[in-house]
Design a protein around this nucleic acid. Structure first.
Length: 207
DNA sequence: TGCCAGGCCCTCTTTAGGGCCTT
């Protein structure tokens, strides 16, 4: 699939799920996302969904989403069908994107939907450009960059909003440090595949 | 009740192992 540099917007997304692996039967229970255009959030998407079975106490504690809250919510199929419309034509970003991509692919596959954009990962980019950060967990990076965070982590919309702030901060830092006026997705794609020790050279020589 | 996965990345590496991230 070609990298979609021409996409007019970027969607930052985050799933809350029943566990770690769709291959083991885990399902999405909440999707949150924000659309970024010209470094500003222009639209958001937030919805709980009923996975069709009771979620564990661990997930209730971890997310603050209870079985009672999921009672009466639309099904995964209904929500993901709307979300497929929301992301159509946009490139996608998530923190540790391999996790969210697995669930997005699995949920859309269940309803025979797909998407045309390509994923990038805020965690992999942060590992390249914030190499001295103590950890690259989302919450720790938000503190590390002194980004305001008024809300609770581990809910989908809030985490997607924080990932969006981190993403914009990272791109601004790259622009300021290397005198770039704009950062295309093709540069981000190149950076996340660049060995850490070579990141400075790639950015210094980027036109 | 307790447990599960998988990609990235480093190193005491590449015929491997283990930590980091995500829920």
């Amino acid at each position: 699939m070609a990298f979609n540099n021409s996409a007019s917007s970027l969607v930052i997304l985050d799933f809350e799920t029943t566990g770690l692996s769709p291959n083991m039967g885990d399902r999405a229970i909440e999707i949150g996302a924000v659309r970024i255009e010209n470094s500003e959030v222009t639209e958001s998407f937030s919805q709980l969904m009923d996975p069709g079975f009771r979620i564990s106490g661990f997930i209730e504690d971890y997310t603050g989403i209870s079985n009672q809250m999921l009672n009466g919510m639309p099904t995964c199929a209904q929500v993901m069908n709307e979300f497929a419309d929301f992301i159509e034509g946009s490139n996608l970003v998530a923190h540790n994107a391999s996790f969210d991509k697995r669930f997005l692919d699995a949920e859309l596959n269940q309803i025979s939907r797909s998407y045309s954009g390509e994923f990038s990962c805020s965690m992999l980019l942060a590992r390249r450009i914030y190499q001295s950060a103590p950890t690259h967990k989302l919450g720790d990076l938000i503190k590390y960059k002194n980004i305001s965070a008024d809300g609770g982590f581990h809910r989908a919309l809030f985490d997607s909003q924080m990932t969006a702030k981190l993403w914009i901060t990272m791109l601004d830092d790259i622009k300021n440090d290397y005198g770039l006026t704009d950062i295309e997705f093709s540069l981000v794609k190149k950076l996340v595949k660049t060995p850490k020790k070579s990141v400075h050279d790639v950015l210094s020589n980027w036109k």
